[in-house]
Simulated assay, not measured.
Amino acid sequence: MKRLFKIVILAVIFISVGVVGGRWFIKMKNNPSATEFKIYGNIDIRDVNLAFNEQERIAETFVEEGDRVKKGQVLAILQTNRLEAQIQEAEAQIAAQQEVVKRLEAGTRPQEIEQARAEVAAVKATVRNSMLNFERISKTSGTGATSQQALDNARAQLDVDMARLKVKEKGLNLALEGPRKEDIAAAKNTLEALKAALSLLKIRLADMTLISPSTGIIRNRILEPGEMASPNQPVVTLALTDPKWVRAYVPEPDLGRINLGMKAKILSDSFPEQSFEGWIGFISPVAEFTPKTVETEDLRTKLVYEVRVFVHDSEDLLRMGMPVTVIVDNTVRSDASGGNCAPAQG
């Protein structure tokens, strides 16, 4: 009897669970809003103001407003004749300094050493002659045959010749030792400084070319050829088309229904037969009041949070400001690679 009672109880429990589960399934099937959340917003596109790093007149602009450009495409160039002349001058200075380093590293030439030795020998002969002349005048001056002035002149000439000999001997020693290590190191450092200056000039030359940092569309062509460009003066405005985003606002009571990374489907009245895949990429940490910033109990439910829904639009169909409907699937997160992972809030 007790066993039969337990079986009945278990049967009742199973039937109750089945009924409740069936009702829940039917309710979820007939009420997709339980798993889907709908918000409304407008397409937003990021703009990039592109400017040169150098200050010079624009030589040529290769794009017009509305042109599609790819990453790495040349948009405009500056006049480079002055900078190219500076590069040629720097290259010539480097070539000259390289020869200086080679000369110092090679040391004194044998011909220069032989010349220094010959000069020392010649001065030695002059010193011997001056010494003999001084000794001869010294002997005759004692007898009165020569004057004291002649003796002083002979002594002075001997001193001059002895000094010249010391100079020539020092020159010979320097020739034998060759250039100092410090002089060679200084010449090499000067060469490296010239090479660094040339590298900087080449970087500046590369900066004379304005290159698109990303794929997009030229929205504004601000400067024309002949005008002076500078780092604080944009030349063109580039609209980044991938990814675009939907700027929408979620009421505070519904904020708990969405999270970063949730997949979304974007619908537009302009393309009723087509949907665009996206994902929640940003949820503002700061609330905004609508229509006015008064935190009263009746207006507290009017708090909204800005949400950005990123969307890939490979055909560039969605335009800036276009109103769209976003259907968020709050049961699936986007974990695909290639940018679908949600960025950090902030």
Rank of each mutant, 00 (worst) to 15 (best):
S334M: 14
L200C: 04
T237A: 01
E315G: 06
I58L: 13
N330T: 10
T209R: 06
M162N: 14
R300C: 01
L50D: 01
A34P: 03
T146N: 03
P251T: 15
A239K: 13
T146C: 00
N340K: 15
V328A: 00
P251R: 15
S270R: 15
L158F: 13
L176I: 11
Y249T: 03
S212P: 00
A175T: 01
Q79G: 03
V307G: 03
C341S: 14
A185V: 07
E297V: 01
A197T: 12
E54V: 04
A85S: 13
V120R: 04
T290Y: 11
V324A: 07
R109M: 03
Y249V: 00
L267P: 06
E105M: 10
D47N: 14
F276L: 11
V20I: 15
V236T: 06
I113P: 00
K195S: 05
E297C: 01
Y249S: 08
N31Y: 02
V123T: 02
V324I: 06
P32D: 01
V74H: 05
E135C: 00
G278H: 08
I283D: 06
V48H: 11
A90Y: 02
G21A: 12
V311A: 07
G18Y: 12
L174E: 12
A90E: 10
L210R: 02
R219K: 12
I94S: 08
T108E: 06
L132A: 07
Y249N: 09
K195C: 00
M320V: 07
I77Y: 04
N173H: 12
E84I: 11
K181G: 08
K139L: 14
N330H: 14
V328M: 02
P213I: 01
C341V: 15
I184Q: 13
T140V: 11
L240G: 03
I94Y: 07
K188G: 00
G18L: 10
A186E: 11
G278S: 05
K195T: 04
A122C: 03
T241H: 04
V235Q: 09
S16A: 15
I137R: 12
E295L: 03
N259S: 11
I45T: 05
M162D: 12
M320N: 13
S130R: 15
L200T: 07
D161T: 00
A121Y: 03
L172H: 05
A186K: 11
G346Q: 05
N330K: 14
Y40L: 02
A163Y: 12
K102E: 06
L260F: 13
R46D: 13
T35S: 10
N53S: 15
V167F: 09
N153W: 10
T325R: 09
E277T: 15
I137A: 10
R109E: 01
A287M: 13
T61S: 08
V8T: 09
